[in-house]
Nucleic acid binder design. Structure first.
Length: 692
DNA sequence: GGTGTCTCCGTTTTT
DNA sequence: CGGAGACACC
C-alpha cells in the first residue's frame, strides 16, 4: 500500500509517524512531542483514510482550535489532490474549528428549531453580545452589579455557581439570565458559546455520526468541546486525537490539564508517541528537556549547533538597543528579518522594543490579537450586512448609522428620527442607507442573473453607494476601499464555492466570517512582510524561527509571580525555547522596571545545564545609549500630550478630564484632583466636550 | 457627596 | 497580599 502512487509522501514519514497514520484503533491518542511533525501525520491520516480506506471526506470531522490551523490542514490536503480523483474542497465541510463545524451543523443538519431558533440565526461577536446585555438590562430595568464583569458572572452561572465571588447583596442576575436567553430566541441570535452548547445538545440524540473524528491540539480541549466530541461519536465512530501534554498553556481559559487521561479512560484509547524533533539543534533540545517530566519522550536528530546565550542587561531599554544592533548583524550576514522573533511574558513588554526599533529602523510586527473590530471599515461593513440580512437587528442599524467615521447621524436625536423612519419599513419614502438596507433582499432576488458573479463585489459596493460613506477626501479612502472590497470579495468567493443563491449566500457568509475575526482581511494589510516578530510566549505556540530571543527572564516574571500555576508557567517557558531552530538567546535585567520582578535571573535559567550556555559579558560601551533613551522618552511624551489635548471629556462626578488611553471596551481618563479612572465604554458615564 | 466596607484583580487569548 | 475600584449607607 505504501507504493501507492499519490502517497509518495508516505516515504518521508518516519516509523512513528507511519504507525500513527496506519493505526485503525477505535480510539487513538497520539502523544506528539514538540516539533515532531504532528500536522504532517494528521494530513497523511486523512489522505490515507480517504484514498486507501475509501472513507469519504465528508464522513470525517476534523477539529482544530484556530482558523489558521484549519486552513493549513485543508491547504495541505488540497496540495495532495491528484487528477484521477481530485479533492473537492466542498467535501471538507466538517473540517474546521469547533465553532465553525458547530455553525455548519446547526445551519444545515441539526434541528435547531427544537431549541427555539431557526436555521438562519445570526452569530453575534462579543461586541454584539455586550450590546445585547445592555439592551436587556435597560429594557427590563434590571439592577445588575459589577456590569464590567457580566461575562465572567455568566460563565459562573453556567457552571452552576449562582453567586459571584462573595457578593453579599443580591441583584437581578437570575432574572437577567432568563431574559437574556429569551431575547436571544426573539432575535434569533447565538453567541460563540451557544454554538458549541446547542450543537452538542442536538448531536447527542441526533443521527449525525461520522466514521472518523480527528482532533488537533487535543491538549487545549475544554469541557464543552469534549461534550461536542461525545455528541459526534456514534457506536462505529473512530477517534484520533493528536496533542502534546507538554504544551498545555491554556488551563486559565478552560482547557483541562487532565484531558489526556480523561480521553484514555473514556474511550479506552490506545496511545502512540511521536518523539523525534526535526526542528531544533541539540543544544536547544537539551535545554528544553530539562523542563519535561519524561525527557526520553523527546529525541533530537540535529547536531549541537550554537550554545544558548544567556545575557544580563541593565534594563529592557538597553536590551532593546543591543538586540537592534544584533538584528542588523544577523541580517547583514544574509538572514532575513522574518527569521527572527522576540518573546516576552507580558504584552506591555513589547513597548520598549517598538520604540527602539522604530528609531533604529528595524522593521517589526507586534503579533496583537486583532479582532475585526480593530479594522473599523471591515466592522462597519459587517454590521451593515447584519442589519441588511436581518432588519430586526436594530443594534447593528444603530452602529451603522451612528458610527463616527462612516455613519450619518451625529446626535442621539438624529438617530431616533432615523430609527422611527426605519421602523416604518416604508421603502418608498426612505432614503440613503436606510432604504438600501431594507431593500437589500429584494435587490438580491431581482438582480440580473446574467451579470457576471465574478464582479459581485463591485455590484454590491455600488448598490450601497459605499463611496458616499467612505468620504473620498479622507486620507484613509484608498485603504478603506481596499478593505471594503476585500471583505465583499471574500463573501463572493464563499457564495461561488458553495453555489448559493445571492441573499442566502450573503447571510451564510456573514456568519461564517464572523468566526474568522480580522483574518478575513488581514492578508491584504500585511502581505508576507519581512519583519522581526514580537509576541508573547503564549502567541508563539505553533510557530518556529531561526533566531529566538526571550526577553526579561527575571525572577518574578518567569514564572510570573502571583496566583499562578508554576507547572504551567514552566510549560510556557518550554514552548518558548522550543520555537528556536538554530539560535536561542535569553536575557534578564539587573534593573527591571516591572514591579514584581527581582533583579535576579529566573529559576528556569539555572535549570539549564552550564555546558550548553554561553554567558557573554555585558557590553556597556555603547556611548550614545543615554542620548538615545532621552530622545525616545521625549518623543513618547510629546505624542502623549498631543493625543491627550485632543480628547476632553466630562464626568458627572469627577468633572473634566482628558483621555489617556482607549481600547474597544475601556477608556481611561485622567481627572484633575482624582487621578486616572477607567470605565467600560458600554456603561460609560462620560460625555465628550469640545476643546474650546 | 463623603466615608467605610465589600469585592476584585493581578497575566496569558480564540472563536 | 495590597491596592484600586465599586457599592451601601448615611
Amino acid at each position: 500500500m505504501l507504493q501507492c502512487g499519490h502517497l509518495g509522501q508516505f516515504e518521508k514519514l518516519n516509523k512513528y509517524q507511519k504507525d500513527a497514520v496506519l493505526c485503525e484503533d477505535k480510539a487513538l491518542l497520539l502523544n506528539a512531542s514538540v516539533g515532531s511533525g504532528k500536522t504532517t501525520v494528521l494530513v497523511n491520516k486523512v489522505l490515507y483514510l480517504h484514498y486507501i480506506k475509501n472513507v469519504p471526506l465528508n464522513d470525517m470531522v476534523v477539529l482544530t482550535f484556530t482558523n489558521k490551523a484549519a486552513e493549513e490542514i485543508k491547504q495541505r490536503i488540497i496540495a495532495y489532490s491528484v487528477s484521477p480523483s481530485p479533492i473537492d474542497p466542498k467535501d471538507m465541510c466538517f473540517f474546521g474549528t469547533f465553532h465553525s463545524v458547530a455553525n455548519y451543523l446547526l445551519s444545515n443538519i441539526l434541528p435547531i428549531e427544537s431549541l427555539g431558533f431557526t436555521k438562519d440565526f445570526t452569530i453575534v461577536d462579543n461586541v454584539g453580545l455586550s450590546e445585547l446585555f445592555e439592551s436587556v438590562i435597560n429594557k427590563n430595568k434590571l439592577n445588575i452589579k459589577y456590569k464590567n464583569n457580566i461575562e465572567s458572572r455568566l460563565e459562573n452561572h453556567r457552571k452552576g455557581i449562582k453567586h459571584y465571588g462573595n457578593m453579599k447583596y443580591k441583584d437581578d442576575f437570575d432574572v437577567f439570565v432568563d431574559k437574556l436567553n429569551m431575547e436571544k430566541k426573539n432575535r434569533n441570535i447565538l453567541d460563540f458559546d451557544d454554538l458549541i452548547e446547542m450543537a452538542s445538545k442536538l448531536l447527542r440524540d441526533g443521527s449525525f455520526k461520522p466514521s472518523w473524528i480527528i482532533i488537533d491540539e487535543f491538549q487545549d480541549t475544554d469541557d464543552s468541546q469534549l461534550n461536542m466530541i461525545d455528541g459526534l461519536k456514534g457506536d462505529n465512530t473512530h477517534i484520533f486525537a493528536v496533542g502534546d501534554p507538554n504544551q498545555i498553556i491554556y488551563t486559565w481559559r478552560g482547557s483541562r490539564g487532565d484531558m489526556f487521561d480523561t480521553f484514555k479512560e473514556r474511550y479506552n484509547a490506545s496511545v502512540m508517541t511521536l518523539p523525534i524533533n526535526y526542528r531544533s539543534t541539540m543544544s536547544i533540545l537539551t535545554a528544553a528537556k530539562v523542563f519535561l517530566d519524561d525527557p526520553s519522550s523527546l529525541e533530537g536528530i540535529r547536531d549541537m549547533g550554537s550554545a544558548i546565550v544567556v545575557k544580563r542587561h541593565y534594563d529592557s531599554f538597553n536590551e532593546a538597543v543591543y538586540i537592534a544592533d544584533k538584528i542588523k548583524d544577523i541580517v547583514g550576514r544574509g538572514d532575513s528579518y522574518k527569521d527572527i522573533a522576540i518573546f516576552y511574558r507580558m504584552k506591555m513588554q513589547s513597548q520598549v522594543f517598538e520604540d527602539v526599533f522604530k528609531r533604529e529602523k528595524v522593521p517589526y510586527e507586534v503579533s496583537s490579537q486583532k479582532t475585526i473590530k480593530d479594522i473599523p471599515m471591515a466592522y462597519w461593513i459587517y454590521r451593515l450586512f447584519r442589519v441588511s440580512i436581518n432588519n430586526r437587528d436594530i443594534d447593528s442599524y444603530e452602529y451603522v448609522v451612528c458610527d463616527k467615521k462612516y455613519g450619518i447621524a451625529q446626535t442621539k436625536k438624529q438617530f431616533n428620527n432615523l430609527l422611527t423612519e426605519f421602523n416604518t419599513g416604508d421603502t418608498n419614502s426612505l432614503k440613503g442607507v436606510s432604504q438600501k438596507i431594507l431593500c437589500f433582499k429584494d435587490w438580491c432576488h431581482n438582480r440580473n442573473k446574467d451579470h457576471n458573479i465574478e464582479k459581485l463585489e463591485y455590484e454590491i459596493y455600488d448598490y450601497f453607494d459605499l463611496d458616499t460613506y467612505l468620504s473620498p477626501t479622507s486620507i484613509y479612502y484608498c485603504e478603506d476601499q481596499n478593505i471594503a472590497l476585500r471583505y465583499l470579495r471574500t463573501i463572493k468567493e464563499y457564495i461561488i464555492l458553495n453555489n448559493f443563491e445571492i441573499f442566502e449566500g450573503v447571510k451564510r457568509a456573514i456568519n461564517y466570517l464572523s468566526l474568522y475575526g480580522s483574518q478575513v482581511i488581514d492578508d491584504i494589510i500585511d502581505p508576507e512582510k519581512d519583519s522581526v516578530k514580537l509576541m508573547t510566549l503564549h502567541a508563539s505556540k505553533g510557530l518556529e524561527f531561526k533566531y529566538v530571543f526571550i526577553s526579561g527572564a527575571n525572577y518574578g516574571v518567569m514564572p510570573l509571580e502571583g496566583r499562578f500555576d508554576d507547572e504551567e508557567e514552566k510549560r510556557l517557558f518550554f514552548v518558548g525555547i522550543t520555537r528556536a531552530k538554530d539560535n536561542l538567546e535569553i536575557s534578564y535585567h539587573s534593573n527591571p522596571e516591572f514591579r514584581r520582578a527581582l533583579p535576579s535571573p529566573s529559576p528556569y535559567l539555572k535549570m539549564i545545564p552550564n555546558e550548553i550556555i554561553e554567558s557573554e559579558k555585558f557590553n556597556s560601551s555603547n556611548k550614545s545609549i543615554l542620548e538615545l533613551r532621552k530622545e525616545i522618552i521625549e518623543n513618547i511624551n510629546k505624542k502623549q500630550n498631543i493625543e491627550s489635548d485632543k480628547k476632553l471629556v466630562s464626568h458627572e462626578r469627577y468633572g473634566n478630564g482628558y483621555v489617556i488611553s482607549e481600547t474597544d471596551e475601556y477608556i481611561t481618563v485622567k481627572f484633575e484632583g482624582y487621578g486616572q479612572k477607567s470605565f467600560s465604554k458600554l456603561f460609560c458615564p462620560l460625555t465628550h466636550i469640545s476643546p474650546n
